[in-house]
Simulated assay, not measured.
Amino acid sequence: MSKRYDEDFKDWVVLQMMPPLNRSVAELAGTLNLLPKSLRAWRQMARDKGSIVPGNGKTSYQWSSADKFNAVMETAPLSEVEISQYCRIKGIYPEQIQEWRVMCQNANTVVDLDPNGVKSAEQRRIKVLERKLLKSDAGLAEAVALLELRKKANAIWGEDKEE
């Protein structure tokens, strides 16, 4: 028969897995004589409620993108003082929140550079093809304009007759 734990105890255990303590599931399970499966389930329930629970000894630099995004969302309406207090509780720095905010804001921008800061061969090829397409479009427009001009000239002066 399994033992039932109250919500306060579960919340306390989840807090142990959060920064700054960052206690791992294995460590807590051994210390508290609980099943790791239960701890993982409680951690997931806390995440489902919207809490940021990286867990398993992860430092803030190892947090998942979802946890970083949640931290940005939780701190968005806060003042600078409130953000500092939030960061102390979570074991992170306000600069990290700012860095993550910028990363979130730039998440959908297209980067034309490879990781080394150089345009890839495919990107260069695309640029060359785009330039050729623009030139051919301009040439086509010029040819159409000349044909129209010829039609108008023929309408005014009649057909060209070779002598």
Results as ranks from 00 to 15, higher is better:
V110E: 12
V111Y: 02
D112L: 13
D112E: 09
D112G: 09
D114Q: 03
P115M: 00
N116W: 04
N116F: 05
V118A: 05
K119A: 15
K119M: 15
S120R: 10
A121K: 15
A121H: 07
E122L: 15
E122P: 00
Q123P: 00
Q123E: 11
R124W: 10
I126G: 09
K127C: 12
K127W: 10
K127D: 15
K127H: 14
V128P: 04
V128D: 14
L129G: 06
E130S: 13
E130I: 02
E130H: 09
K132C: 10
K132F: 03
K132A: 11
L134Y: 00
L134S: 13
S136M: 09
S136E: 06
A138C: 04
A138T: 06
G139H: 03
L140P: 00
A141W: 01
A141C: 05
A141Q: 12
A141T: 04
A141I: 03
E142T: 08
E142Q: 14
E142P: 02
A143V: 06
V144A: 10
V144H: 05
L149G: 08
L149H: 06
R150P: 00
R150L: 09
K151S: 05
K151Y: 02
K152E: 09
K152F: 01
K152V: 06
A153G: 05
A153I: 15
A153K: 09
A153T: 14
N154W: 00
N154C: 08
A155E: 10
A155L: 02
I156Q: 08
G158K: 01
E159A: 11
D160I: 10
K161T: 11
E162A: 13
E162D: 13
